[in-house]
Design a protein around this nucleic acid. Structure first.
Lengths: 339, 339
DNA sequence: CTGTTAGCGCATTCAT
DNA sequence: ATGAATGCGCTAACAG
């Protein structure tokens, strides 16, 4: 920077002012500065700047599993929103491991990120200290139990309810659900939505129709096998995440059942392949990109207001039910579809 | 840090030494320092440290499309290798846009990252200045034309050749390929491998059997439609990436063709869903995670040796052909499968 | 409008 | 083995 100043024949503060627009610099000198920067291929040192101004313009993003296609899409939203504000993103994969998540949080903190975006993989209490510190943070997708800070996620209860209602309207009564880890708000809400919808129609949920999975394909497969081998198997199954839905489809294939003729299926999340599956899958499509955008801009306002507003709002985005070919009226009730 | 020093009853330099193990500190004092750090919830300021030592222990990763499932998997590899070395990762999505890529590179540079991992979405010359600067950089997946720096990618030529040979062995002669953007080494090599294999068996490639796509599903779909409507349609098709394969499968479905009975299909990349497709897809599986790991550790050595070795090696990882159900002998030649 | 200067928090000589 | 002092590159306050 001193070099630039010398070459441009001005002082360092003028260079600084020219770069940041902090003060008014005469056009002529500004031009000279720009030229000098070009000649020297000078890039302002952000780390020195950060040290000085106390902001890094970097945020951390922590999530449980980047190979779950849901997250890359929200990352894209985050990145776009961040980029527009001149922010960069440090990515951290917690791998569903609370210890690892804590470690990541700690290094992010050391790196003096201005804020954190996180999809929890831990119990709620783990984030209390951060929240107390009024450190800018917004939760996305998975929320801790008592979210008194900003958060954005899908309205999972509503989403699951819509899915269930669709099934109910088709005439299904024996509906099962493969649930995810109920420690996570996401899957708790999804189960709740299922319950609500069934209750509203006064349809009972058999205990044996509720199976817990660990979000991986294998568990979805195993749960489905049990479900489908029941003396009175369900005529429709909802999977609480995309990987488990894949396991479900495999189980159906292995048992040589016809979908949707013998069993209807609804999954969560919509990817390129769901539409090309046989049958084309009926799914609940979340607004992944928007979740990322919204979360990021919410974080940005938190950073801007310096812990001003303590009570962050939690934004719930509606999901969309994409009705395709994996859901149909149950075999026995074909005649009276429109109840 | 001064606070810590005071509370521990030592000087700041002792604290520094205790934290970094730079000098020998008596166990008693080291203990006191640790306690003081705990009490004050002190986290060393990495940005100040970076400014001082001239290293940030951050690397930048630039890639064209994070929603292409290939990349998240290599990111996981990168992240794991980075984490072990105490490095963090700044993620940048170039969105296949060279201008955006350059902007990202520029901010990464300003942020004083210690090195960059990149899957190019630009012509080769764009990286020359970086290379000349001897800035630590390793290319992954897509390499610039004249890679004289470190790089790691799949042996795409070999991969495509294996795929083609499999088809040839099944008895196919009319084999088509939906190629990607030939500006990228990846797709150029894949085409080359296809050519080589055909040549070795003295089988001609019809011009009309080569269709270029833009890596997106839609283009794969359109190219496939053209291919399959040819007067003499191919009996087998290779898609140069996973999204285009999806388009291919859709085209097959729409034309009510049977796969593999009427047309065999091979795609690139293996995801959870390829195995659950109907038919289960024969694919070329790249070692995505390993690509990330290797690239990162290669970058780490470059960073370590401070531009010492100018000539970086390029590591080529073998891909694996997973033969499943989307490939079979061509209909007309069922009788003489084992040529 | 522009130049001079004092730290931001830390690692690192160099004395002690 | 430990402490005092110096400066990494930059911004912001202040003086010109």
């Amino acid at each position: 920077m001193r070099e630039v100043a010398r070459l441009a024949g001005v002082s360092v503060s003028t260079v600084s002012a020219a770069i940041n627009g902090t003060a008014i610099v005469s056009p002529r000198r500004a031009q000279k500065v720009r030229e000098a920067m070009d000649v020297l291929d000078y890039h302002p040192d952000q780390v020195a700047r950060s040290l000085k101004v106390g902001r890094t313009e970097v945020v951390g993003v922590v999530m449980p599993d980047i190979t779950n296609a849901f997250y890359p899409e929200v990352i894209r939203g985050i990145e776009d929103a961040a980029g527009q504000a001149g922010y960069s993103v440090i990515l951290c994969n917690s791998n569903e491991d609370p210890a690892r998540e804590q470690r990541h949080l700690s290094t992010l903190f050391s790196r003096r990120v201005d804020g954190v975006l996180i999809a929890c993989s831990d119990a709620s209490t783990a984030y209390d200290s951060l929240i107390r510190k009024r450190f800018p943070i917004v939760f996305f997708d998975r929320l801790p139990a008592d979210t008194n800070r900003g958060a954005v996620c899908t309205d999972n209860l509503d989403a699951a309810r819509s899915a269930t209602e669709h099934l109910l309207q088709l005439g299904h009564r024996n509906i099962a659900m493969i649930t995810g880890n109920l420690l996570h708000s996401t899957h708790r809400d999804r189960l709740e939505g299922f319950r609500k919808a069934m209750q509203e129609r006064h349809v009972a949920i058999l205990n044996e129709y509720l199976r817990g999975g660990d979000l991986q394909t294998r568990s979805g497969y195993e749960a489905s096998l049990e479900l489908l081998r029941l003396p009175r198997p369900p005529t429709a199954i909802i999977a609480s995440n995309n990987k488990m839905m894949l396991g479900l489809m495999r189980a159906i294939g292995e048992l040589s059942l016809a979908c949707p003729a013998q069993v209807s299926v609804i999954g969560f999340d919509d990817y390129a392949w769901t539409e090309y599956f046989t049958p084309r899958l009926t799914v609940v499509k979340q607004k992944t990109y928007d979740i990322g955008c919204r979360a990021m801009s919410m974080l940005l306002t938190q950073i801007g207001s310096e812990g001003g507003s303590d009570q962050g709002e939690v934004v719930q985005l509606k999901a969309e039910l994409l009705i395709r070919e994996s859901t149909a009226a149950p075999a026995a009730k074909r005649a009276r579809v429109r109840r």
